[in-house]
Write a protein that binds this DNA or RNA. Sequence first.
DNA 1: GCCAACGTTGGC
DNA 2: GCCAACGTTGGC
Length: 154
Amino acid sequence: MAGIWLLKSEPTVFSWDDLKAAPNQTTCWEGVRNYQARNFLRDQMAVGDRVLFYHSNANPPAIMGIAAVVKAAYPDHFAWDPQSKYFDPKSTPDMPRWFMVDIQYRRDLDPPVTLPELRRTKGLETMLLLQKGCRLSVQPVTEAQWQLILDLRS
DNA sequence: GCCAACGTTGGC
DNA sequence: GCCAACGTTGGC
């Protein structure tokens, strides 16, 4: 069974609409600079995995829709660019420290599933996103959680 | 803008 | 290896 992930993005940095407007509705997911998130991304994300696209630092924070992984992990070359805000001199082409995947738009959740709605939903209490202080920007989602979330819009 | 929670850094 | 200081995240 293919994996399921929740990816966080601040809409002022890269929004759901940005993804839909991107060439081929596809984008590389650069800028992950946390080791736990990197390990999920690098070691476990695979082509065909399902993605919940979440707007953090938004009003309200919400899952905007569904995307899919269309390219598995490869080195995040933004880490090598001194002009990039994601520059990290400790990552080199020979020894890349950071990785990214490509994701592609699949469909909207209409309307978006807001954080308060998620908190109200029975069965999602253990979802990582809802845990106090969980800042992980790449999170695994269980099949049961996925189904509960989709059921909110069907 | 505030601030709690967390992750990382670096001196020792 | 400890841990204080610092930086970041992200809801509110």
